[in-house]
Design a protein around this nucleic acid. Structure first.
Length: 669
DNA sequence: TGACGCTGAGTTTTT
DNA sequence: CTCAGCGTCA
C-alpha cells in the first residue's frame, strides 16, 4: 500500500458501500483492484472464497491472478475467484446444471459454431444465407439485451428482424438439443436463473460476498444485470472503469452503465484517479484536449509528473506507401540513433487492412515486427477439429462437433449416410451419437454404413472409459495415435512447415488441457476432464503463446487491441477522415466513440507520439484524396510539430510558441 | 475430391 | 485491388 497515492489508498480502504473508481488511462487501476483484494483478506478478515474479481479478457484475469498471489504470498488465496464474466457464468451454469436441465459436460459454441448452425438452419428453411452475419449479430444483440425468441418475433419489424427472429427460435431449440450454450448464454442463463430462482441467487450471493469489476464501461445489459443480482442490497461492490475508454459499444457494451450506478446505488461513492504514471504531460494534455470534445457525466483531467516531453509530431505523407515507408524510416532511425529497442515501439491503426502495406515496407527495411490479431488460436482448423473430438467425448449430444469429426480422418462415412442418420435422430428426438446405438438404424441404411458408425461410437466410448479409469491426457493421446491424427494433418497441409506448425499447435492444446486440469484439481479435487475441456473453450491461448515468444520486435496492432497496453514510442497512423473517424461512424453519427478510440491510441504513448496520415490513398484500386482527421484540429496546436505540409506547416509550427522552443534548446544544452 | 472461375465485400473483436 | 467463399465441372 505504500506504493499507492492518496486517492488510490482511499479506493482500497473504502469498503462501507458501493464504490465507483473512475480510473483514467495509466492511473494504476489494476493496482487498486489487486491491493483491495489483499486488503479485504488481510485487514477485513474476509475469506478469499467470498471475493470475486471479474474482468473481460483472459489476459486481464491472468495478470490479476498473478499480481494478487504475489501480494498474498504464502497466504491461502484458496477459493478466490478471479475470472472473466464468461468464466464466472460457466462456473455458475456448471454448478447449477441440474436446476437448469443441462447434462454435465455441456458444449460451448464459439462464434464460428454458432454461425455454422445458423447457416444450416437458414438453408433448411430455403432462406438466403447471405445474411447469416447480420442474423447472428441480431440474435447476439437480443441475447445481450435479454430479449427471448417469442418477444423478438412479436417485436420484429424489418425484414432482417423477422428473418433473425425466426432463426432465433430454431437456434435456441437446437442448442438445447445439443446440450450446448453459446457465448452470450454464459451470462444470460445465470441471469435468468437468478431472476426465477431466489434460492439459487441466495446461494451465490452468500458465496460471493464482495465483488470487484474491472472495465465496467464495457459491460452489456446482461452482464450489468448479473452484477446487480449478485451484489443485491448489500452493496459490497467496487467497480473500476473509464467512460473515455469505452470503445466496444458496437458489440453491445453500455458505457451508460457507469452513470446508471448512481441511480442503482444512491449511496455510491465516486473516487477519481487522475494522476497518470505513464505518459509525458504533453501527451496527456493532447489527450485531455481531444476528449474534452465529448460530453461527460464525470469530468476528469489526467496529469503526470513525467515532465513535458517532446512535441507530438504530425507527419503528412503523399500517399499510403510514403506513410508506411516514413514509419519504417522513423523506426530505424530511433533504433540506430537512439538505440531504442524495437519492442518499445508500436504502430497503431484503425483497421487491420492497414497492416498489409506496413508489413511489406517493414520487411523491405528489415524492421522486425510482431503482428497481433489475425486468426485466433481456436479458429485454426486443427484446433477446432481436436476440440470437436474433446467435445464429443464429454458431450455426445453435440451433433455439431459429431458431424465435424465423424469423417475426419476419413472413415468412409459420406453425406448420404449422415443425412439418413440425421433424419432418424430428428424423428426419434435423440442425438446422432445416440442414434448410432439404436437397432432401428438398420431399417434406414445399409448394414455396412451402420457398422462404420458404430465402430466410431464404440471407439469414442472406449476412450472415454480410459479417461475415467486412467490418466485422461494419456487416453486422449492414445485417441490421437489410434486415428493417426498427425498423419492426417501432414496429408492436409500445404507444406511440411505448415504441418509442423499445426502439430505443434495440437501439442500445445494438449499441454494446456493438462495444466488446466491440474489447476482445477488444486481448487477442487473432484474436478474432472469434462470441466477442464469446457474451460478450455474459453481459454485464449494465443497471447500466452506470444508471451513465450518475447523477442524484440515492433508491435503492430489495431487501436482496439492496444487498450490496456503501453509503449514508450507510439506511431498512430491513418489520421484521416473516413478512417479515424471511420466512414461508417461518420454516417451513423457516432463520432464520440471514434474520438475515444483516438484517445486510447494517444494515451498508449509513454515518451513520444507520432501521428501520420496520407494525402492520397488507393482505395479499391482507385486513387482517392484524403482529408486530415477532424481530431487533429482538436489537439492543442502549440504541442504539435507538423511536417510535410509545405508552407502551411511552417505557419502551424510557429504557433507552438517560444516556450516550446526554449525547452527544446534547454534539452540540447 | 479437387481445380478453377465467378461474385461480392471491404471496421473494430472478446468470450 | 484482393481475397474469401461458393458453385460448377471434370
Amino acid at each position: 500500500m505504500k506504493h499507492l497515492n492518496a486517492r488510490q489508498r482511499d479506493a482500497v480502504k473504502y469498503i462501507n458501500g458501493p464504490l465507483l473508481v473512475l480510473a483514467g488511462a495509466g492511473s494504476g487501476k489494476t493496482s487498486v483492484i489487486t491491493q483491495k483484494i489483499a486488503y479485504l483478506v488481510n485487514e477485513c478478515g474476509i475469506r478469499p472464497a467470498n471475493i470475486a474479481a471479474v474482468t473481460f479478457t483472459n489476459k486481464a484475469s491472468r495478470e490479476m491472478k498473478e499480481r494478487v498471489s504475489s501480494l498474498l504470498e504464502g497466504q491461502p488465496s484458496r477459493g478466490l475467484t478471479v475470472a472473466t464474466f464468461h468464466n464466472l457464468g460457466m462456473t455458475i451454469i456448471r454448478r447449477e446444471h441440474k436446476l437448469l436441465g443441462f447434462k454435465p459436460g455441456f458444449s460451448i459454441f464459439d462464434a464460428q459454431d454458432s454461425k455454422a448452425l445458423l447457416r444450416d438452419l437458414m438453408l433448411h428453411n430455403n432462406e438466403e444465407t447471405d445474411q447469416v452475419d447480420a442474423v447472428q449479430h441480431q440474435i447476439s444483440n437480443w441475447k445481450n439485451d435479454m430479449v427471448d425468441p417469442d418477444t423478438a418475433l412479436s417485436r420484429a419489424q424489418l425484414p432482417l428482424e423477422i428473418l433473425a427472429a425466426r432463426a432465433y427460435e430454431a437456434y435456441e431449440t437446437h442448442l438445447r438439443a445439443y446440450n450446448a450454450v453459446d457465448f452470450d448464454d454464459l451470462i444470460l442463463i445465470p441471469v435468468r436463473l437468478f431472476a426465477s430462482q431466489p434460492d439459487a441467487l441466495e446461494r451465490w450471493q452468500n458465496r460471493l460476498r464482495y465483488l470487484l469489476v474491472d472495465e465496467y464501461q464495457d459491460t452489456n445489459l446482461s452482464q450489468y444485470r448479473l452484477v446487480k443480482q449478485l451484489v443485491g442490497t448489500r452493496g459490497a461492490l467496487t467497480v473500476v472503469g473509464d467512460d473515455d475508454q469505452s470503445i466496444y459499444a458496437w458489440r453491445g457494451a453500455r458505457p451508460e452503465n457507469l452513470a446508471q450506478l448512481q441511480q442503482d446505488f444512491p449511496s455510491l461513492k465516486v473516487i477519481k484517479l487522475e494522476q497518470n504514471y505513464r505518459s509525458t504531460s504533453r501527451i496527456l494534455k493532447a489527450a485531455n484536449t481531444l476528449i474534452a470534445n465529448n460530453p461527460h457525466v464525470f469530468e476528469k483531467q489526467l496529469w503526470s509528473e513525467m515532465g513535458m516531453g517532446d512535441p507530438i509530431r504530425v507527419l503528412h505523407n503523399a500517399n499510403e506507401e510514403a506513410e508506411c515507408e516514413r514509419i519504417a524510416m522513423e523506426i530505424l532511425d530511433l533504433h540506430l540513433r537512439n538505440t531504442v529497442a524495437f519492442r518499445d515501439m508500436a504502430i497503431l491503426y484503425r483497421g487491420n487492412f492497414q497492416a498489409r502495406l506496413l508489413e511489406i515496407k517493414l520487411q523491405q527495411y528489415q524492421v522486425p515486427y510482431k503482428l497481433s490479431g489475425g486468426t485466433s488460436f481456436f479458429a485454426r482448423t486443427e484446433i477446432k477439429d481436436l476440440m470437436s473430438y474433446l467435445k464429443v467425448l464429454i458431450n455426445p449430444d453435440d451433433d455439431n462437433a459429431f458431424l465435424r469429426i465423424i469423417n475426419l480422418p476419413r472413415r468412409e462415412i459420406g453425406p448420404s449416410t449422415l443425412q439418413k442418420l440425421g433424419s432418424y435422430a430428428l424423428e426419434r428426438q435423440i442425438s446422432m451419437f445416440d442414434a448410432c446405438g439404436e437397432l432401428g438404424l438398420e431399417q434406414v441404411m445399409p448394414a455396412n454404413a451402420v457398422q462404420r458408425l458404430r465402430r466410431f461410437c464404440q471407439w469414442m466410448q472406449h476412450i472415454l472409459k480410459q479417461c475415467y479409469e486412467h490418466d485422461p491426457i494419456e487416453a486422449i493421446t492414445e485417441m490421437m495415435r489410434d486415428m493417426d491424427y498427425e498423419g492426417w494433418i501432414a496429408e492436409n497441409s500445404t507444406s511440411d512447415a505448415m504441418a509442423e506448425k499445426r502439430i505443434q499447435n495440437v501439442g500445445f492444446l494438449l499441454d494446456s488441457l493438462r495444466s488446466t486440469l491440474e489447476r482445477l484439481q488444486e481448487d477442487d479435487p473432484d474436478a474432472g476432464i469434462e470441466e477442464a475441456i469446457t474451460r478450455l473453450v474459453l481459454l485464449d491461448m494465443l497471447d500466452r503463446q506470444e508471451e513465450e515468444d518475447d523477442s524484440n520486435r515492433v508491435q503492430l496492432m489495431t487501436l482496439h487491441a492496444s487498450k490496456g497496453l503501453e509503449f514508450p514510442y507510439v506511431f498512430l497512423m491513418g489520421m484521416e477522415e473516413e478512417l479515424l473517424p471511420h466512414r461508417n461512424s461518420i454516417e451513423s453519427d457516432n463520432i464520440e466513440e471514434e474520438r475515444r478510440l483516438a484517445y486510447v491510441g494517444i494515451t498508449r504513448a509513454k515518451r513520444a507520439l507520432t501521428i501520420t496520415l496520407a494525402k492520397q490513398r488507393k482505395q479499391y484500386g482507385e486513387k482517392v484524396d484524403c482529408v486530415p482527421s477532424r481530431f487533429l484540429d482538436e489537439l492543442p496546436p502549440e504541442d504539435l510539430e507538423v511536417e510535410g505540409l509545405g508552407e502551411r506547416c511552417q505557419v502551424a509550427n510557429q504557433r507552438r510558441g517560444n516556450a516550446t522552443l526554449n525547452s527544446l534548446k534547454n534539452m540540447f544544452d
